[in-house]
């Protein structure tokens, strides 16, 4: 079946099956492999993308459900000149990643959070990330990076 959607501002079309997942369409057909598939069971959040402005787990949504939608992926986060977005830069500055596998999903979730809640508390950040698992960092620096990206002073947050 034909599907078309706007991905990171660009209109794309493809031919998919009913069962093709949005994550599969992005990765296999559009070669946007920044969207990671960790668990493929809606648990880990590595595959989080934005669909019409809200965060969704792309491993748990059919590509055809996104027909006509505005989709945002990690590839669309950096500025046009290739420099990192504020959130991405904060992850780098505050060591918010180690292996980096969870990072695309973390950044996309963080972007969704900060859009709705530009100055979240630390507790709100932790709560919002409940569906994003990281096996490396222990989360502290991820939370710190997101707080910093929201323009808040993070000097008091210990790098545990």
């Amino acid at each position: 079946m034909k599907v078309s959607m706007t991905v990171n501002g660009r209109l794309v079309e493809g031919d998919v099956e009913g069962r093709t997942l949005l994550s599969g369409f992005l990765r296999d057909q559009l070669s946007l492999t920044g969207t990671h598939v960790g668990c493929d069971t809606a648990q880990c959040g590595a595959c989080v993308v934005h669909v019409d402005g809200v965060a969704v787990k792309s491993c748990n949504m059919l590509a055809l459900e996104a027909d006509g939608a505005e989709v945002g992926t990690i590839e669309g986060q950096a500025h046009a000149d290739g420099s990192l977005s504020v959130i991405q830069q904060a992850f780098q500055d505050h060591h918010g990643l180690q292996c980096g596998f969870c990072t695309p999903g973390m950044v996309m979730s963080a972007a969704a959070l900060l859009k709705d809640n530009p100055r979240p508390t630390e507790a709100e950040v932790r709560k919002y990330l409940e569906g994003n698992l990281c096996r490396c960092t222990g989360y502290h620096n991820i939370v710190k990076a997101i707080m910093a990206a929201s323009g808040q002073d993070v000097s008091h947050i210990a790098a545990e």
Partner: peptide, 9 residues
């Protein structure tokens, strides 16, 4: 329910 991404779908 679940987490933000689950609640959006």
């Amino acid at each position: 329910i679940g987490d933000p991404a689950v609640r959006n779908r």
